[in-house]
Design a protein around this nucleic acid. Structure first.
Lengths: 151, 151
DNA sequence: TATTGTTATACTCTATAACTATA
DNA sequence: TATAGTTATAGAGTATAACAATA
């Protein structure tokens, strides 16, 4: 028995929530197989792409508050996936670098995630997936722009 | 200074997460102004659309585990937005109905949310919004279908 | 024996205030 | 005084196991 939720479906915000909740479960399972969570995975990705970056920059890029980064960075460090060096120009800050194991782990996880991505976009052609990505980025910018205005 | 996150942006799952996180903040603020949270709001909507439904059906329709519904239903009841009646055909179950105040509150909140929805979809024409909604529902179904297969 | 709702519990993510050590 | 990272804490959402009452 299926209950109607037409009213909620009219809201893009609700559709976004449902789609994200659904895909998030898949990504979570896929990442867990590699000993990663969504947050540790995305931080690891950014550190690989921007070796030497500081925690503050990491948090800004991923929209993660600084206090919440502490455990994420600690988990990645303890797992041997990144290493921290005190910055030579500013001894308050840490520069974050991937280890070889971190890079390898990320590459493996990425293969799995690309497969998940392929499956969840089944039934959409390349142009439709591109349009979806573009629309999502516009929505994200619109919502964060409002956020700035409200500050 | 903007750090590249091209690798992550290639994943629809990541774009979905970022867009949802961004819009969710807006919806959260909008709902708080009406004394509601995302969960209480969507439950209230479903109860209005399907008066007399049971908690179990509510949870199934909204993908909320039963234990997690207890507080949501309690909050809505204490706020005077819904009422619970023991089902006449099954005294284990409660039938949930909206109160007049609940219906009124929902209508008010919906006006605000539609405005938020309009703003976050700025720059997308009607066809693009429709395509976005359609793509999101396909992705949601694909991901939950995999979920069923994994059970 | 199965189901409805409940309790207890735990984990993740998120958010804010206050602290420390450097700049 | 401002900034980088930290600690402490709290709230919201989500997940599972075990229980009582009822079917």
């Amino acid at each position: 028995m299926i209950l109607p939720d037409e009213t909620l479906r009219a809201l893009i915000g609700y559709c976004l929530h449902r789609a994200q909740a659904s895909t998030n479960l898949r990504f979570k399972t896929a990442l867990a197989a590699h000993g990663l969570r969504r947050t540790t995975f995305s931080c690891l990705s950014l550190i690989i792409e921007n070796p030497g970056l500081k925690q503050g920059q990491l948090g800004e890029a991923l929209a993660i508050e600084r206090p919440n980064l502490v455990k994420i960075v600690e988990d990645l460090t303890c797992a041997g996936l990144i290493r921290r060096e005190t910055s030579k120009t500013d001894s308050r800050a840490y520069a974050l670098y991937p280890t070889d194991e971190g890079t390898a782990r990320f590459t493996e996880a990425m293969v799995t995630l690309r497969m998940v991505d392929t499956v969840v976009t089944e039934g959409l052609n390349a142009a439709e997936v591109a349009a979806l990505r573009s629309a999502l980025e516009k929505v994200e910018k619109n919502a964060s722009r409002i956020s700035e205005a409200a500050d």
